[in-house]
Amino acid sequence: MFDRLIEEAPRFFTYYNMIFVLQAMGTTLLLTAAGCITGFIFGFIIAAIRATRDPLLKPLRFLVIVYVEIFRRIPFLVTLFIVMFAVQIVSRNVSLFAIAVLSICMLSTAFLSEVIRAGMESVPRLQIEAAETLNFGFWRTQFRVVLPQAWKVIIPPAFAFMVMFIKDTSLASQMGVIELTFTGKSLMNRGFSPFLVYGVVLAGYFVMSYPLSRLGAYLEKRLASA
């Protein structure tokens, strides 16, 4: 088995194959980054909506809770299928990449909104009351008082979720999005040994995820002592 790998290696580790893999890693990172950025923005909006108390906004609060609970309770693969076919009813010209981005954004919004909400709830209610008596509006209170105190609680678990999103994007390969896992499959179809191919793919994921995990663990310690 090993002689086969050694014999195959020079053919596998060529410049073009490696560029191919690196590009695929770029796509995986791009998918994850899109998910994280959208997830933070919409997750914050959802968490903020859930922090409102106005009885008029009750239906809106209910809707966002339903959204969050749905997307935290169905498998990402199922989300991908639903988004893909729903989008194709509307238009046939949407790229697979765009569908994958949309799906990961829906997932990340649901999960990150919970992380952000937990962070916001860690800020004492009295801080919000003080802002209220100073005539801060709702959004000013969120941006000037709540978020600057909540981010210490938000950041460490957010990193864990970023790693989760990197791993979840591998399922987009099943829709035909040419990211790292898909590239592994196509290299295997070109006759390379699965040992070599999936070894490299696993290493690729590890190289992307591990620094984030370490950074998250480091920040968790740092922020807890600060």
Partner: peptide, 12 residues
Amino acid sequence: AIVFQQYNLFQN
């Protein structure tokens, strides 16, 4: 204006 028992200064 009100001053609270727990001061409620903005910690940030």
